[in-house]
Design a protein around this nucleic acid. Structure first.
Lengths: 67, 67
DNA sequence: CTTCCATGTAAAGTATGCTTTCCATTCTTA
DNA sequence: TAAGAATGGAAAGCATACTTTACATGGAAG
């Protein structure tokens, strides 16, 4: 799965730390999502989508996973 | 978070076991989701949505969580 | 060049998602 | 009523999400 988090965050001129605070997660969590180290839980995905006023599918792009 | 999984599955006349097989998860996972014991990962949420030809938001309903 | 700010990333620990195995309950249907 | 099919749910174990702490890197600005 890939995501457009960094792109969308930068469009809005927001720092990782600000986004993290707004979502009540750590800065490292945001960085890890942006750099693809892991996927968000569905709850965090909902929080992110709601924060940006978008749908989950507009931010997180499901592609056939390996396996 | 609540979900309409059981409702949608029954509308289509599918058994938990059939859905589980199609999604490549265990039957217990489907049962646990339907009965709210836990939330799906975002990958599983995507698989479910795609299987039913719906959006994640049409199946999983985010409500302010306690905490 | 130095300093500050934003980001990258790692390690160890906790919480949650998912599996396998197992047994109980409910519904159908013969 | 008996038997099989579908579902509920617990327990233990493994995988992954997320936290806190800590340190490194890169860019901007003095």
């Amino acid at each position: 799965m890939r995501n457009r988090l960094e792109e969308i965050r930068k469009e809005r001129g927001i720092k990782q730390e600000e986004l993290a605070a707004a979502l009540e997660v750590s800065r490292q969590t945001i960085g890890s999502l942006e750099n693809g180290r892991y996927n968000p839980s569905i709850l965090l995905a909902f929080k992110i989508a709601r924060y940006f006023g978008m749908k989950i599918e507009d931010i997180f792009i499901y592609e056939e996973e390996q396996g």
